[in-house]
Simulated scan of single mutants.
Amino acid sequence: MKGLFCRAGVSDAEPKFVIQETTLPDVLTSHQVRVQVKACGLNPLDLKLLSDVGIQRDLIPVGREVAGVVRQVGPKVTFFQPEDEVVGILPLDSTCSGLCDSVDIDEHYLVQKPEKLSSVCVAAALRDGLCAYTALHTHARIAAGHTLLVMDGGSAFGLMCIQLACYHGVKVLTTSHSPQKHTFLEQLRPSVGVQEPLVARVIPVYNDSSDLLSVVLEETGGLGVDIVIDSGVRLQDEEEDEEKKLLPHKHDIISVLGVGGHWVTSHQDLQLDPPDCRLLHLKSASVSFLNPEVWTASSAQQGRYLHILKDIVEKMSTGVLRPQPEEAVPLYEATVAMETVQRHPKKKAVVQFSSDLK
């Protein structure tokens, strides 16, 4: 059996992705489940995070978001039985690559997959759903009546945040990074119920004429928003990278926050200057960091994590969460797809196994 692994580069060298032979043990441990993989989502590897938590290997398994069918269960497994369709995320320290025909995974990292939900869809969107759920519920503690600003709502993560927030009665504002995304967001409607726009205001940031602060204050009666969720920020005013120029400046985000507001950031190296901290203090606002790996890196809240995964797949099955469709690539293109994803972190890919092609 073959799997895809990453050979981390030395110093600044780019990591290389290689196909390696791998085997599974003959006997499963107490709570392990052997899953025949139908689809596997590909997301960028955070090699620095792996190093920080002490995971250092010559070959790092690639592909952790998996959907498939249970083929064998360990002697103490109680949640699943053979032929169950399941979905889950392999833990950080897993030695299995999700891009194998079969993987062994502890039953406490899996949930049942609804029958009407395709393996490709759930494998592609599970991580974004988990990030959105963590940002809105765990960090921001959203409630009906709140006002939310989602940066880059046209991204896969941003779209999940918008749909989840609207489901809970939150007023949503968002930014668009291109004319195409702007049109898409303006036309976004729920799949059930009253067909009103999901987004109260789409703010274009792909031209210099946009003024984020003035538009947000206009929409909130000068009060600012309760929650801001970013997908990266600019720490300096001058950025040469075209993609980074579209990101909001950290001061802009703090400025649009209302009193008691909450900023959820995915920027790992955020630096706040004394004036920024002073403004946050005056507003009694707070900042939290979104790390989606925290659920699988620690077993402290395993039950809550499983509840989140179950809720995500149920909402995807009923149409509350409708992720952007990802075109599946065959297994033989997985290496090239992963290289692209690693170089361009905002790109996504999902691999569909030939056994699941119909």
Rank of each mutant, 00 (worst) to 15 (best):
R304W: 13
K113N: 02
V194R: 12
L110D: 00
P190N: 11
H251A: 15
V351M: 07
L213F: 12
P275Y: 04
T183K: 14
V69G: 07
Q81I: 14
D269N: 14
K283H: 05
D52I: 04
K116S: 14
Y206A: 04
K38R: 14
Q342S: 01
V199C: 05
S97G: 00
S51V: 08
I55C: 05
S286P: 10
P44V: 01
V33Q: 00
S178Y: 03
V86T: 05
D104V: 12
L164I: 13
A135K: 03
V199L: 03
D211E: 11
A300V: 15
G3A: 08
Y206Q: 06
S286N: 13
I19H: 12
A200F: 04
Q72V: 07
L136H: 01
E293G: 09
V37N: 01
E186Q: 15
V10P: 05
I89D: 00
D84T: 07
I308W: 12
S266R: 07
K245A: 07
A300T: 11
L185T: 02
T340V: 13
L198P: 05
A165P: 06
K245C: 09
G193Q: 04
E186A: 07
E326W: 03
R57T: 01
K310R: 14
L198D: 04
V103K: 00
L290K: 02
L321M: 02
P44T: 08
V194Q: 15
V86S: 06
F353K: 00
V215G: 08
V228G: 00
C277V: 11
T296C: 08
Y332M: 11
G41E: 09
Y305C: 09
Y109K: 00
E239L: 10
G232D: 00
L4W: 01
Q180R: 14
H182W: 07
V287L: 15
T147Q: 15
H262S: 10
E327L: 15
E14Q: 14
M160W: 04
C121H: 03
Q268M: 15
A140R: 03
V103N: 00
Y206D: 08
I162P: 10
V205L: 12
P274H: 09
P15E: 02
D230F: 02
D106V: 02
G153S: 09
V228A: 05
T22W: 09
V87H: 00
L357I: 15
S354L: 13
V172D: 05
C96W: 01
P204H: 07
G41P: 06
R7K: 10
V320S: 05
T174C: 05
D26N: 12
I253Y: 04
R34E: 10
K76V: 08
I162Q: 07
A140V: 04
Q301K: 11
G169I: 02
K76G: 09
D237F: 10
V313K: 02
T183R: 15
D241M: 06
A200P: 02
A200L: 03
G54S: 05
G153T: 06
L99S: 01
A125G: 05
N207H: 13
R189W: 07
V264L: 04
Q324W: 08
A349W: 03
K346H: 12
A39Y: 00
F17S: 03
I229G: 03
L50N: 07
L306C: 10
Y133Q: 10
Q352D: 04
I253P: 00
V66F: 01
D93G: 04
P197W: 06
G129V: 03
H177W: 13
